[in-house]
């Protein structure tokens, strides 16, 4: 039973990777016409990625997602604004801290920054820089979900907030050090993947369906949009502190 579930997950993860494998194989064979260096190691790594991702998603679906969804519903019904907002913030923060893509990219960003001579290259500074990046992103996602929940409760139109956010991003770009701009813009897309999207979407849709006069399809969405906008602003702020 468990075995067949894991097998299905493995197959799902493999299907996700298949298009990438096809494209890379096509380029190696038809365009570059040379073998991939370290092929064995890359294949072994790809196997770990598939196994790891399927275990990870299986674990989330077993425990975390049902509980997260149930809690979002229970808190929405409870009707206490304070606890709801606190939960929204904590949910955004804690799911972002565990987001695999963010862990990987922030470590890489620290390497690049040290190679470019922006920060010292000893391992403590590297870790601190990567940690700082992740914390600014996590904090900003927490804040974004909090504002998004306020929006659903109050019924503010989404596009005003998003366009306002775009304007703030552009203003921050003017004052932010140029070494941080690339990673800051990327941070928006990095934050919202495996864990954050399903839990946050459950919170939004659950909330919109318990509040009278809100449609889950129209008001339930939009939380992810905030979660990918806010990190840009905060990472640029982090850059101002570190490089500024």
């Amino acid at each position: 039973m468990i075995f067949s579930i894991i097998l299905k997950k493995l197959r799902d993860a493999f299907t996700d990777l298949l298009p990438i494998i096809v494209v890379i194989a096509f380029f190696q064979i038809a365009v570059l016409k040379q073998p991939l260096p370290q092929l064995g190691e890359v294949l072994f790594g790809a196997l770990l990625v598939v196994a790891g991702l399927s275990l990870f998603v299986q674990g989330l679906e077993m425990g975390l997602f049902p509980i997260g969804e149930e809690m979002a519903h229970a808190l929405a019904r409870k009707g206490s604004l304070f606890w709801l907002l606190l939960f929204a913030f904590a949910l955004g923060f804690s799911t972002t801290v565990a987001e695999p893509a963010l862990i990987a990219v922030s470590a890489e960003a620290a390497h690049i920054a040290s190679e470019g001579g922006l920060i010292d290259s000893n391992s403590d500074t590297l870790r601190q820089y990567a940690f700082g990046l992740r914390m600014s992103v996590a904090f900003s996602v927490g804040l974004a979900i909090l504002i998004g929940v306020m929006r659903i409760i109050r019924g503010w139109p989404l596009h005003y907030l998003i366009i306002g956010g775009y304007i703030v991003v552009m203003l921050m770009t003017i004052i932010a050090p140029k070494e941080i701009i690339g990673i800051a813009y990327d941070a928006g897309g990095v934050t919202t993947s495996t864990i954050t999207v399903p839990l946050v979407a459950a919170l939004g849709v659950g909330l919109a369906s318990t509040i009278r006069g809100r449609s889950p399809l129209v008001d339930g969405f939009g939380l992810i949009a905030f979660a990918s906008l806010m990190p840009m602003i905060f990472v640029m702020g982090y850059g101002l502190i570190v490089f500024g």
Partner: peptide, 15 residues
């Protein structure tokens, strides 16, 4: 979740 995340991160570095 913990085991899967760790495997994924190791694989990521290698692949």
């Amino acid at each position: 979740v913990v085991a899967g995340l760790a495997l994924f991160l190791v694989g990521l570095e290698k692949a």
